[in-house]
């Protein structure tokens, strides 16, 4: 049994502790907003917050988060109105959308670290996440917009 807090709710899972957190979140708990892209810390599609820090869920086992607080895209806001999500819609960022949960979660971690980041800080921070559709410039604009509105 592993106990942790997921999106504000206490959860207990009986998956083997060495099972990937990403698979437990997606298939065990059933929250599909967190994506699999590479399993290798290279794409960021699986980005979640563990104790507030942006983390690759494909690089953690569920045992690693025993007692921790985990937030996924579903827990970022109750109704999809987090300033970043609104900014994502206002800037019409997503194309295929597959990377965007991870992008938004990484951006949220950035804004909680630096509330008013410079463009260079945004670019640097967001470089952990890939977007094959090439929406990066819109991501930068959306982060700046959200930072203005927080």
């Amino acid at each position: 049994m592993t106990k942790f807090t997921l999106n504000g709710q206490p959860v207990e899972v009986d998956n083997p502790p060495e099972e990937l957190l990403l698979l437990v979140i997606r298939d065990g708990v059933g929250l599909k907003g967190t994506k699999y892209g590479c399993g290798a810390a290279m794409c960021g599609a699986c980005t979640v917050h563990v104790n507030g820090e942006a983390s690759f869920a494909c690089q953690l086992t569920v045992g690693d988060v025993e007692g921790a607080t985990v937030t996924t895209i579903e827990g970022l806001s109750s109704d999809g109105t987090h300033p970043l999500q609104k900014a994502w819609i206002d800037e019409q960022v997503p194309q295929c959308g597959y990377c965007q949960s991870g992008q938004i979660m990484r951006a949220a971690a950035l804004l909680s670290e630096i509330s008013n980041p410079s463009r260079a800080e945004i670019v640097d921070y967001m470089s952990a996440n890939l977007c094959r559709c090439g929406t990066y410039n819109r991501i930068f604009k959306a982060v700046e917009r959200a930072a203005r509105e927080v």
Partner: peptide, 15 residues
């Protein structure tokens, strides 16, 4: 606005 953008900004789009 694109119809699919809200779901793709909230993790709700289903692939």
């Amino acid at each position: 606005p694109r119809r699919d953008v809200p779901a793709k900004s909230t993790g709700k789009a289903v692939y």
